[in-house]
Simulated scan of single mutants.
Amino acid sequence: MGSPSGPPYDPDDPDRERRERDTEPIPRIGPEDGPGPGRDRPDDPFFSDDVGYGDGPYGEGRSGRSWVRDPESGYEPPPQITEDELAGLRVDASGLASGSRRVLPLEDEPSSLTARYLFPTERFRGEWKRHWIHLATPIAVGIAATFVLGYLSGFLAGQDVGALTTVAVLLWFAVMGWVAWRVADWWYDRFILTNKRVMVVNGIVTRKVAMMPLARVTDMKYEQSPAGRAFNYGTFVLESAGQDQALREIKNLPNPNELYLRVVEEMYEPAAVEARLTKQAEEAKADDGA
Results as ranks from 00 to 15, higher is better:
E83Q: 10
P110Y: 05
Y9A: 08
T23N: 11
L149W: 07
W187C: 00
Q243A: 11
P256F: 09
G95Q: 05
P25R: 03
R125A: 04
T278C: 05
W132E: 09
R116A: 12
Y75A: 03
S63N: 13
R190N: 00
G88K: 12
L86N: 02
V217H: 04
G59T: 10
A275S: 10
A246L: 13
A140Q: 08
G54W: 14
R197K: 07
N257F: 06
N202H: 06
W128D: 05
T82A: 04
V161S: 08
D189F: 05
L104H: 15
P11M: 00
G74D: 10
H131F: 04
E76A: 07
A136W: 09
P256V: 11
S225N: 14
R262G: 06
N257I: 02
V148H: 00
V167A: 14
D92H: 02
W178Y: 15
T146P: 03
V161I: 14
T166S: 12
R18D: 03
R125N: 00
Y268D: 05
V167N: 04
G177F: 11
S111Y: 05
G52K: 13
V141M: 14
A87P: 02
N255G: 02
R62T: 11
V141E: 08
R207P: 01
A286S: 11
A97S: 10
V217W: 08
R62S: 07
P120Q: 08
V141K: 11
L164C: 06
D108I: 11
W67K: 01
A180L: 14
